[in-house]
Amino acid sequence: MKNSIRPKHPDITSEMWDTIDEIIAKWKNTPGSVITVLRECQDVVRYLPSELLHYISYGMGLPLSQVFGVATFYSFFSLTPKGRHTIKVCTGTACYVKGIKETINRIYGKYNLKEGGTTEDRRFSLEGVRCLGACGLAPVMVVNKDVHGAVSADKVVQILEKYE
């Protein structure tokens, strides 16, 4: 698409827009591909600002209601910005039985951060995910791509302090 119709957005650089155009071009003619497009665009920008959803709707030739409907239905998509580090706490049954709730409470106590939220300084975002397939290490937390096992409430802050 032409550069001139790209909306301005502080979190989307022009290289990102180029990639987004490529994604749209690749999937435009595949029926049912909107979820894939949203995922790939989110990989680029790290979240889906509403300007981007408008752009995707226009680019894919899909009603805005369908694009927004899909983006809000699936928990994988985030319409708000993410922190520099993403903390994923496993809220699967095994981790719950092994005490992830206390770990989450401790994170809240220290960083005033709740599930689905981002700290004001955009240092951390916290997400709850279901079973990461590492129940043997429960309770499990993933920071960016690092898996941490047996994260008791007592250990969690110490681990997180390493992420600036």
């Binding site: 049954t93 095994a94 279901r130 079973c131 590492a134 129940c135």
Partner: peptide
């Protein structure tokens, strides 16, 4: 694999 405490299919 929706059951939030299971990972058979994944494996």
């Amino acid at each position: 694999e929706g059951d939030p405490g299971a990972f058979m299919d994944r494996s």
